[in-house]
């Protein structure tokens, strides 16, 4: 039964995809020569490209397919600062996310432990965390650029700051809500504080901590695209912005698809890890 529902879901997914692609194809090939006047706002946004190239038609699925094929057959070329393979751009973004996220893990988990272990610290830091948490990470960008004076480091900082809060909150919560029974077991066995932290608190809080990491990595991947659009240079976000300036919609759609796929893979990795440390009660 489960197997057949899996198969049926897959078939349905393929049908939906096919309908979507067909509709897309018909929509873009139908009213081809629209020839409506260019919106002045749009012209201003598009800038030079629009002025010279006029109207670019919306690409159909076949054009995008070709573009994907082109990118995938040579993802890692470098022909200059503004012309690098999409694989290289993705790698830049991933590296920034992993670096910022990694530093955030290194800070949030030990700090969250401390906060969770001490009700006093928990209460004292709570107002700060509550204020910092809802700040859009991009709002930090000007401050980062001003203090760090390096666009690459600034985007890593922005990733760090946006990954920090979910992990910090989840770690503190996970540590604070370890069952009293389990702590009492450690106490009656005269287990020292360090051993207790690693053998009772960490395994007990691990699922909550990893859930925090999963939320963080998702946010980080959302934010990196916006951050790179802002600071430019390299990365998939910059690639999207650059292709917008080139009015290359096929490249933009390709990039959008890849961003989604990479985000999904990151999420799945963390989901696997979470499942690994989850214990049934």
């Amino acid at each position: 039964m489960t197997r057949s529902i899996g198969v049926r879901a897959l078939v349905l997914s393929l049908v939906i995809l096919a309908i979507f692609l067909a509709a897309w194809h018909v929509a873009v090939s139908g009213g081809g020569g629209g020839g409506q006047a260019v919106d002045p706002e749009y012209a201003r946004l598009v800038g030079a490209a629009a002025a010279t190239g006029g109207q670019t038609p919306m690409p159909g699925p076949i054009d995008v397919g070709k573009a994907i094929w082109k990118h995938m057959s040579d993802p890692f070329y470098v022909r200059g600062t503004n012309d690098m393979g999409i694989g290289i751009q993705l790698a830049y973004s991933l590296a920034r996310v992993l670096l910022g996220f990694g530093i955030a893990v290194a800070v949030a988990v030990p700090l969250g432990f401390l906060i969770g272990m001490s009700p006093l610290v928990y209460r004292a830091l709570d107002p700060f965390i509550q204020v910092m948490k809802p700040i859009s990470p991009l709002a930090w960008m000007p401050l980062a650029l001003y203090t760090i004076k390096d666009s690459a480091l600034s985007s890593i900082f922005v990733i760090f700051i946006c990954s920090l809060w979910p992990m910090l909150i989840n770690t503190a919560f996970g540590v604070a809500s370890v069952r009293k029974d389990w702590l009492n077991v450690a106490r009656t066995l005269e287990v020292g504080p360090v051993r207790k932290a690693f053998t009772v608190i960490l395994p007990a809080a691990a699922p909550t901590i990893l859930t925090g990491m999963r939320i963080s990595v998702g946010i980080a991947w959302l934010v990196i695209v916006a951050a790179e659009m802002l600071v430019g240079g390299t990365g998939i976000g910059y690639f999207v912005w650059n292709q917008w300036n080139n009015l290359s919609l096929t490249d933009i759609i390709t990039a959008i698809l890849l961003i989604g796929l990479v985000g999904m893979v990151l999420d799945q990795i963390l989901a696997r890890l979470t499942r690994l440390v989850t214990y049934p009660e």
Partner: peptide
């Protein structure tokens, strides 16, 4: 040694 009412085993 304590035998807890709720057995107190570490589930992992």
């Amino acid at each position: 040694a304590v035998i807890f009412q709720s057995h107190g085993l570490l589930p992992w």
